[in-house]
Design a protein around this nucleic acid. Structure first.
Lengths: 354, 354
DNA sequence: ATACAGTTCTGAATCGATTCAGAAGGGTGA
DNA sequence: TCACCCTTCTGAATCGATTCAGAACTGTAT
């Protein structure tokens, strides 16, 4: 059996309290005795205070949990998520805090169990939609958390860091509209759960359940409504995942149709890269014959010449972790809206023939 | 104060043991009583058994620690590391185990403290060199661990998953040598700690302290020795980090010199992409006037037409986690060597004028 | 000599659960 | 009716530390 603090104390002939102090409160005992204790510990092969026991007694753990809607491996696959995490980890590093990356299972029961069993001091909830039960599980757990978007059910103490999705989306859509495009398609990931890839009917952008998607679609719609193109005239395309392949699959049908859109506005760069792939396969390169826009401005976007909206990914992660680890003094400080920038590159151009 | 299990037990009028069983051993009590307990818990706002206390009593945590030599954020910046992590997380997911990503501080004292304070059941040590004290800290902690390369100081019970670095490096160097290249440069990250970017003198490849670098440089050297080019005739270039920029900076000087190498062999794709950047800035595109090779075969390598050595990144992560979570029955099963493939693309070609 | 202040160390309570041997009660077969 | 087994539940020990009030001792000022 591994030795415990008690064994060390016994070996030296002091009380357990003193042995404990040798580790966590050196000022509470003489240097000589402390050296003796540490020495005995080394001799006995005592690995230092058990972190679990210490956490239990102290009441905190020294780690924060990062929750993802999708499977954990997604976190490492999506470039935006990766940069977000880099930001979170930077702050955590500074606080000597570890990150517990947590997969979020699909079914509600297991979500609860995952949240309830995590040894953490708080949660950073990334990319979770309106699945209120996830948040509820965390609240029931009674620990602080921060989300990456304002929530419909937000309480006054809720903390979040986000962007103005609607305005950001509108900025890129305004750009596309100004180029003369009127027959456009909007492309989003999982507009409705379980929906097949390709065109999808929705009464309005507000019907998209995921708040981020909803915000962006609404922003797109705003811009076209302003130039006289109402929602029903916009083609909504559903992708079954946030990946290049899913983006490509989602546009395949309409691109092959008789009246393809003159522009595709995607809710993420990854999706729009899929659109570029699909066009490239047909020997096309935007903006001819179709303009394409993305969202996020990941590294690949620049290389692909993609017109997109930049949001500060690392900054977002950094701030999220700060909100968690450096609790805001007033509730109002718990909300942060980050700026976004329209980045115009070569994937957008005037409507052909205009 | 948050209610505890005792409060729930009291509220229902049962013993704490029974309340505990309601959560962790449902077969130990009648369904009716269990429902009553769970109900009372809900009413009281009891968040379920405290994970820390549970871990303490049960003796395990349900998480494994992933250790990085460099700062944590690096993990999300290096594409190879990201894919490795994706593999680890896939296995962890299957085991219902979380990943604790752990930054590894530069100084020894803090390394010990990080390792000693982590609440985990084992460690996956990624990309750590011969810093034996890191491993020693883990061993002292008395927990299982797996490394991503065989170690000089490996005990019989050590577990690792790696590749034959030397042979893999040799395969790509053989390819370059066969193309006629004799005046070549080898590019590696942090050959010697603190060394400046650019040319570096080393008595032999075996003098590189980091085992991975040492293995690859040795493989490169083997190939050229076989065609009559001895080590001192090879130019060794040091990069100060594993990044594109560092790769570019490392080759700047020799490329601008009178007798630039006809080929640059890098120890990672990221570095070689930096070389491509530098060449592109001068209006060149390999293999003219210089051939370039990488190592790892990350996603960007294909797009860049980079000749490289593929190693199965995700597979490596997957196996590492399995070695940890599904302990090998015999010590021999604790070692895995993964296959590598030479991937010839367009960045290598015959020596100009041959 | 007395009082008071520091320093160093100890004892006991505590963090919040799990576990296991055994008690209590009900049912079955002989 | 007795013995025996099951199911259901309890009591007490336990996991490995931290913490805090106070004991013991030393030293200094009055």
């Amino acid at each position: 059996m591994k030795p415990t603090l008690q064994d060390v104390a016994d070996a030296v002939g002091v009380s357990r309290s003193t042995a404990s102090n040798a580790y966590s409160r050196p000022d509470q005992l003489s240097a000589a005795l402390r050296a003796k204790i540490l020495d005995a510990a080394r001799r006995l092969g005592y690995p230092g205070p058990n972190p679990t026991a210490r956490s239990l007694r102290r009441g905190f753990v020294g780690a924060i949990g990062v929750l993802f809607t999708s499977e954990l491996s997604y976190a490492f696959t999506d470039p935006f998520a990766v940069r977000f995490l880099a930001g979170v980890s930077r702050t955590a590093e500074r606080h000597g805090t570890s990150l517990l990356l947590m997969p979020l299972p699909a079914d509600r029961a297991r979500v609860r169990s995952v949240v309830e069993n995590a040894s953490v001091d708080g949660f950073c909830v990334y990319c979770v939609g309106d699945e209120e039960w996830v948040l509820q599980a965390i609240r029931d757990r009674g620990q602080p958390y921060v989300t990456t978007a304002p929530r419909a059910d937000a309480g006054p103490d809720d903390r979040y860091v986000g962007i103005d999705e609607r305005a950001a989306a509108r900025s890129v859509a305004d750009h596309v509209a100004a180029l003369g495009h009127r027959r456009v398609a909007l492309l989003a990931d999982t507009v409705l759960p379980g929906a097949p890839p390709g065109p999808l009917r929705l009464a309005g952008p507000g019907d998209a359940p995921h708040p981020t998607t909803r915000g962006r679609l609404t922003g797109f719609a705003d811009a076209f409504a302003a130039v006289g193109v109402a929602w029903p005239a916009l083609t909504l395309l559903n992708a079954t995942a946030n990946s290049r392949a899913a983006g490509a699959a989602a546009v395949a049908e309409v691109l092959a149709g008789d009246e393809p859109p003159t522009a595709v506005l995607a809710c993420s760069d990854v999706l729009s890269l899929g659109v570029l792939d699909m066009l490239a396969a047909a020997g096309h390169r935007p903006p001819h014959p179709i303009s394409v826009t993305g969202f996020d401005d990941i590294a690949e976007a620049a290389a692909a010449g993609l017109t997109t909206v930049r949001q500060p990914a690392e900054e977002k992660g950094r701030l999220a972790a700060e909100l968690l680890l450096e609790p805001p003094t007033t509730p109002a400080d718990g909300h942060r809206l980050l700026p976004t920038d329209l980045v115009v590159r070569t994937s957008t151009g005037p409507v052909p023939g205009s």
